[in-house]
Amino acid sequence: MASAHIALELDKTKVKVGDVIVATVKAKNMTSMAGIQVNIKYDPEVLQAIDPATGKPFTKETLLVDPELLSNREYNPLLTAVNDINSGIINYASCYVYWDSYRESGVSESTGIIGKVGFKVLKAANTTVKLEETRFTPNSIDGTLVIDWYGQQIVGYKVIQPDLEHHHHHH
């Protein structure tokens, strides 16, 4: 499982006020993954979490958008969000309720997109977006918690964080 990872990737790293950054949580080689919880931390003074397609601001219960993994209706995906917008926390979880049927299929969803969130840049400041443990994710690996199709926590994978720099224009 050496190359297994969960990554948070940004579609742009040099930003200015008004830009929208799309942050994508991806999984790679996460064999037999049946559920995941991710905790994304950002500065709400600098960034506003939005749906990248509609521009609508995230609320307490807004889910990450456009998931590829853990979204097969055959296994009854359960998606939940407990976001704390004032503190700059997006906390999202998806898991299969019928993980035994999923396991019996023998086909593991291990690589692909967990979900996306957009961030609108509100002011010029150096800032970060990252996967980070909070009170919502005790025992996590950098704010990520993954279970396999036996209901056991998966460990031994890497978490890859993005780089983000604010671009200052010099006149």
Rank of each mutant, 00 (worst) to 15 (best):
S94L: 01
A23I: 07
L164Y: 04
K130D: 08
P44M: 02
R103D: 10
I36G: 02
I85G: 05
V155K: 15
I113R: 11
T144W: 01
L69V: 13
G35K: 03
I36E: 02
S108D: 05
V129D: 04
E104P: 00
N126R: 13
A125V: 01
V22P: 03
S110A: 09
T13A: 11
V146C: 13
E104M: 11
D66V: 01
I36F: 01
E109L: 05
D84N: 15
L122S: 04
V146E: 02
F136R: 11
Q37D: 06
T54G: 04
L63P: 07
G88L: 07
G18P: 06
S110L: 07
E133Q: 14
T13E: 12
V97H: 12
P77E: 01
K26Y: 03
K130S: 13
G18D: 11
A81Q: 04
N76Y: 09
L8S: 03
V38Y: 02
K130M: 10
N126L: 12
V46G: 03
T111S: 14
D43I: 01
G55N: 06
E61D: 15
M30E: 04
L164C: 10
Y96C: 00
K120M: 10
G151N: 02
Y150A: 12
N39W: 00
H5W: 02
V155L: 13
F119G: 06
G118D: 04
Q153L: 05
N39G: 00
L79M: 14
R135A: 15
L79A: 14
I147K: 07
S110E: 10
T137C: 05
Y150N: 15
G55I: 11
A23L: 04
L164A: 11
D148R: 01
N126H: 09
Y98T: 10
L63Y: 12
T62Y: 06
A125R: 14
W99H: 11
L47R: 07
P44L: 05
A49S: 09
A81I: 08
R135F: 14
G151V: 00
S94D: 05
L79F: 10
Q153Y: 14
I141N: 15
S110I: 00
K56P: 05
L64M: 13
Y75L: 02
T59I: 10
I50W: 06
T137P: 06
I141P: 02
H168C: 12
S140H: 11
Q161S: 13
K60F: 12
S101D: 15
V65L: 00
A53H: 07
K26R: 15
K123P: 03
G156P: 08
K14H: 15
V65E: 10
E133Y: 00
Q153R: 09
F119L: 10
H166G: 11
P44R: 00
I154V: 15
S101M: 12
G151F: 01
T54R: 08
G156A: 09
T31Y: 11
L122Q: 13
A124M: 08
P77W: 03
K56C: 02
D11W: 12
Y96F: 13
S108A: 15
L79D: 08
E133P: 02
V107Y: 10
A34Y: 01
N126F: 08
Q48D: 07
K130L: 09
R73Y: 13
N86K: 14
I147L: 09
V155Q: 14
E74G: 00
S32G: 08
I40A: 05
